[in-house]
Computed example of a mutant assay.
Amino acid sequence: MTQVSVRSSANDLPPLAWRKSRRSNPSGNCVEVAELPDGSGVAVRNSRDPEGPALIYTPAEIAAFILGAKDGDFDDLIT
């Protein structure tokens, strides 16, 4: 089992190019993602709390999640 790295603050990371889904709404109900500069993973943070904690996932972990989302594996969470 892989352990996700958690940074106490997104500010603990180097400057990153954060982005969020086009489906994000004005009330800020979205997460933001950023690729780490060394290609070692992807950081994820709450868009409403950009100074808060960030989760760090490996490329394999983020690929598994994105591919699962594309396959509909998590559709029951939004119905």
Rank of each mutant, 00 (worst) to 15 (best):
M1S: 11
T2E: 03
Q3D: 13
V4Y: 01
V4W: 10
S5Q: 12
S5C: 10
S5V: 03
V6A: 10
V6P: 14
R7E: 05
R7N: 05
S8L: 09
S8I: 12
S8F: 11
S9P: 04
A10R: 12
N11G: 10
N11R: 08
N11P: 06
P14N: 02
P14F: 01
P14L: 11
P14R: 00
P14S: 02
P15A: 03
L16Y: 07
L16W: 01
A17Q: 02
W18K: 01
W18S: 06
R19V: 15
K20Y: 13
S21W: 11
S21R: 03
S21M: 02
S21C: 02
S21A: 04
R23A: 12
R23H: 15
R23S: 03
S24A: 13
S24R: 11
S24T: 15
N25K: 02
N25A: 06
P26E: 04
P26M: 05
P26K: 07
P26H: 05
P26L: 07
S27H: 14
S27K: 15
S27C: 10
S27Y: 15
S27F: 12
N29L: 00
N29F: 14
V31G: 06
V31K: 11
V31P: 06
V33C: 11
V33A: 01
V33E: 10
E35I: 11
P37Q: 07
P37T: 05
P37H: 04
D38P: 07
D38Q: 06
G39R: 01
G39D: 00
G39V: 09
S40P: 15
S40E: 08
S40C: 02
S40A: 12
G41Q: 05
V42H: 14
V42R: 04
V42D: 05
V42K: 10
A43W: 11
A43P: 07
R45K: 13
N46W: 04
R48E: 03
D49W: 07
D49I: 02
P50E: 04
P50S: 08
E51Q: 12
E51N: 15
G52M: 12
P53H: 11
P53Q: 14
P53C: 06
A54S: 08
A54E: 15
A54L: 13
A54H: 07
L55M: 03
L55R: 14
L55V: 12
I56Y: 03
I56L: 07
Y57K: 09
Y57R: 07
Y57G: 00
T58W: 15
T58C: 03
T58G: 06
P59V: 03
P59S: 00
P59W: 01
A60P: 11
E61R: 12
E61D: 02
I62S: 02
I62H: 08
I62D: 03
I62V: 02
I62Y: 01
A64I: 13
A64E: 15
A64N: 08
A64D: 10
A64R: 14
F65M: 01
I66G: 12
L67A: 14
L67R: 05
G68Q: 13
G68R: 08
A69Q: 10
K70P: 14
K70A: 04
D71F: 05
G72W: 06
D73E: 11
D73L: 04
D73Q: 08
F74R: 13
F74A: 03
F74I: 06
F74W: 11
D75G: 03
D75F: 09
D76W: 01
L77K: 06
I78H: 02
T79G: 04
